[in-house]
Nucleic acid binder design. Structure first.
Lengths: 189, 189
DNA sequence: CCACTTGCCTAAATCTTTTAGGTAGCTGCA
DNA sequence: TGCAGCTACCTAAAAGATTTAGGCAAGTGG
């Protein structure tokens, strides 16, 4: 009996890969056990249950995404920062569709608080330092930015923009142009 | 043996209600059978399988949403139309979270083509008639609008904006102000 | 009122999730 | 080196989901 060397981290990592290959919905203890050529029950020493597995993958993805975004943001400001951050977001979703889907999992408040969600928010606030927005408009702007990133990537992933002109890449570039223009000229209420 | 009076439509309708109450993920043949106090196998005369059920709920939701949006749009133009349309979208998602989640189901191309998706796109284009945008900028703008609506509602549904100031309602209003300003003053590339 | 249709049934196969308890392999200490 | 103990992975089993096949009885049309 050769041991497979299971650990929680290895399982979560493999779960993330499985999500990218077969979709986040396909990430189940059974599928994961097959991948490790191990009996399903063996996973339960490392994972609480199916939901625990998915939550851990979501947390992993949020961290990875935050890392990438932080790298992209380093040393940039203004529209340059906005574009780099947004592209990091979109590229991650395109490279890792399953993990990106995982980031949309609804986390319970305490788990969410311990997640990389806060880093994401702080980075967005950092981008806005390049524009001149005081509170509460800054928060409104952050929420709008988040909505556009989330929404665009989601629609693109769902195939909404494929097979129709103009190219999605072009729309994305124009959306970032538009957001930059909007932030430089934020309307007063 | 009193018959329950199952039909495909009744099952889909009940499935939509179940989705709103317990989440779209909770919509399964078993759960639906329990709701009708009927054996699971009995559903399979009316539904092809579990995926068929979900797809039908998604199509129902897309139709309902298009109907509401069309009502909201009637007789309006410009920012008035934009606001009414956007609010129809957001209100539907808040009133029917499960159905709204269903609209995000990835449909295969032919099913998508037969869905109300086209109506949604045409309505967005109608809104843009109140602004001065020629192709291809019009398409870019539609994609941006869709992203904001989709993204904002999604983040709101995921609890992203709750428990933090300012109020989500306020951010939503400011997002619509911003979109209106952006469309009136669309940046050239 | 009889025959036909069909709505809902039972039965069964297969798969998933999860818990309980056992055995074999690894680690550490003498 | 050899044994003690830990733990990684196992078997077994319960409970529930999905789906197919085939049967009976309630409704409908002649």
């Amino acid at each position: 009996m050769v041991r497979a060397g299971l650990t929680t981290e290895r399982l979560v990592q493999a779960g993330a890969e499985l999500a990218d290959e077969a979709g986040f919905d396909a990430v189940t203890p059974s599928a994961l056990a097959r991948r490790f050529d191990v009996k399903v029950a063996s996973l339960y020493s490392h994972l609480k249950n199916s939901q625990d597995l998915r939550t851990r993958i979501a947390l992993l993805a949020l961290e990875e995404l935050a890392d990438r975004a932080a790298d992209a943001l380093a040393g940039r400001a203004g529209k340059d920062a906005l574009t780099a951050f947004a592209n990091a977001y979109r590229d991650y979703a395109r490279e890792h569709p399953g993990r990106w889907a995982a980031t949309r999992l609804r986390l319970d408040p305490e788990t969410a608080a311990a997640s990389a969600g806060g880093r994401h928010a702080r980075m967005m606030r950092a981008i806005l330092r390049g524009y001149d927005l005081a509170e509460p408009e800054q928060t409104h702007a952050i929420r709008l930015l988040g909505s556009v990133f989330h929404g665009y990537v989601g629609l693109e992933a769902a195939g909404g923009f494929s097979h129709s002109a103009p190219d999605s890449q072009e729309s994305w570039a124009r959306a970032l142009d538009a957001l930059d223009a909007l932030l430089r000229n934020w309307p007063t209420s």
